[in-house]
Simulated scan of single mutants.
Amino acid sequence: MEDYLSSGLKTLFVYLFILFLFRLMGKREVGELSILDLVVSIMIGDIAVLVLEENDKPFIRTIYPMFVLAMVQIALAFFSLKSVRFRYLMDGQPQIIINQGKIDEKVMRSQRYNFNDLLTQLREQGISDLNEVQFAILESSGKLSVIRNSQGKKSKGIETPYPLIIDGQMQEKNLAYIGKDKYWLLHQLKKHGDLNLNEVSICGYINGQFYIDKKESKKKPKA
């Protein structure tokens, strides 16, 4: 009985101690955690498990690493407030994914951010047509901030976007959804500048309208 009581009190104390540490480190939403915050949170969680399992070591000694991690995180957060360069070094820098309606593939590659990620996050914000987007910024937390095109037309009723080409790959299922085939798509590409599949980063189809974003040319201009 004493073992159960001791284990329960120990668990309660560890819970309250971790709660205190996180309050000490500052309030941050889960979706806005930086890489540093995430690493510290995971490490504190892992140490807490060891604290509850190790009964042969002094209790203060087992929780001491959690306190050290919290102090390190607070110190780094302080330096981040004082120095923009240090903040970008620790948390990363926001990156513009869509600039004036044009997708920046170089930035996407550097952030290991693919077109499916982009379309998913746009849909989560109620955007089904890429023509509505003027700027899309990938924040250091991984969240996509979108500035809509003020001249973009809002769709009437519910419209479903159909990506037909993603990174040069034809999406045959989506072609079937709209009752078309690959020959129709190739014909449409020919009408829109005689394009090949491997020249297209993304091709969308909504409400009978096409959105085509060409891949950036990798060829360097001649001197």
Rank of each mutant, 00 (worst) to 15 (best):
Val40Pro: 07
Val49Pro: 11
Val39Leu: 08
Gln209Ile: 11
Ile98Cys: 03
Leu5Met: 11
Leu197Gln: 06
Ala176Ile: 14
Ser41Phe: 14
Lys173Glu: 09
Asn149Ala: 04
Lys10Gln: 10
Arg61Ser: 13
Asn99Trp: 02
Ala75Trp: 03
Ala136Leu: 11
Ile137Cys: 07
Leu12Met: 14
Ser141Gln: 00
His187Gly: 02
Ile97Lys: 01
Val146Asn: 05
Lys191Tyr: 03
Tyr113Cys: 12
Tyr88Glu: 15
Ile147Glu: 00
Phe79Asp: 01
Arg112Pro: 12
Gly92Asp: 01
Val51Met: 01
Tyr64Asp: 04
Ser6Gly: 04
Ile42His: 03
Glu159Ala: 12
Asp56Lys: 10
Asn131Pro: 00
Ser34His: 04
Ile63Tyr: 15
Lys102Asn: 13
Val146Ser: 04
Lys180Gln: 14
Phe115Ile: 13
Asp194Ser: 15
Gly26Thr: 08
Ile97Cys: 01
Asn99Arg: 13
Lys143Trp: 00
Ser7Leu: 13
Ile60Glu: 09
Met108Gln: 10
Gly179Pro: 13
Phe86His: 07
Leu185Phe: 10
Val84Asp: 02
Glu124Tyr: 13
Lys215Ile: 12
Glu53Gln: 15
Gly8Lys: 04
Phe59Gln: 01
Leu189Met: 14
Arg23Cys: 02
Gln151Ile: 05
Val133Glu: 03
Lys214Pro: 06
Arg148Val: 01
Pro94Ser: 07
Asn55His: 05
Asp46Ser: 05
Tyr4Pro: 02
Ser83Tyr: 07
Leu52Met: 14
Pro94Gly: 10
Lys180Asn: 03
Ala223Trp: 05
Gln151Phe: 11
Gly204Phe: 04
Asp37Cys: 06
Lys219Cys: 08
Asp3Gly: 02
Ser145Arg: 04
Ser150Gly: 05
Leu175Phe: 11
Gln171Ala: 05
Gly45Pro: 01
Ile74Thr: 06
Lys215Ser: 02
Val200Glu: 00
Ala77Pro: 05
Gly126Lys: 12
Ile127Arg: 05
Gln121Met: 12
Ser83Asp: 09
Ser110Arg: 14
Ala77Lys: 12
Arg61Ile: 10
Ala223Pro: 05
Asn196Leu: 07
Glu2Pro: 03
Val133Ser: 06
Val39Arg: 03
Val51Ala: 08
Val39Pro: 01
Ile44Met: 09
Asn131Arg: 12
Met90Arg: 01
Ser201Trp: 05
Lys10Tyr: 01
Ala70Phe: 02
Gly8Ile: 08
Ile35Gln: 07
Arg28His: 11
Asn174Trp: 12
Arg112Phe: 14
Tyr211Asp: 00
Ala75Lys: 03
Asp46Tyr: 04
Ser128His: 12
Ile202Val: 15
Ser110Gln: 15
Ala75Asp: 00
Ser140Arg: 09
Ile42Met: 12
Leu21Ile: 03
Asp213Arg: 09
Gln121Phe: 08
Val72Arg: 03
Asn149Tyr: 08
Ser128Phe: 15
Leu122Cys: 13
Ser140Pro: 01
Lys190His: 09
Glu2Asn: 10
Trp184Asn: 03
Leu189Lys: 00
Leu195Asp: 02
Ile178Glu: 10
Ala136Arg: 09
Ser41Arg: 02
Leu195Thr: 02
Pro163Gly: 06
Ile103Thr: 13
Glu105Asn: 14
Ile178Asn: 07
Asp46Ala: 09
Asn196Arg: 14
Trp184Lys: 04
Lys180His: 08
Val68Thr: 14
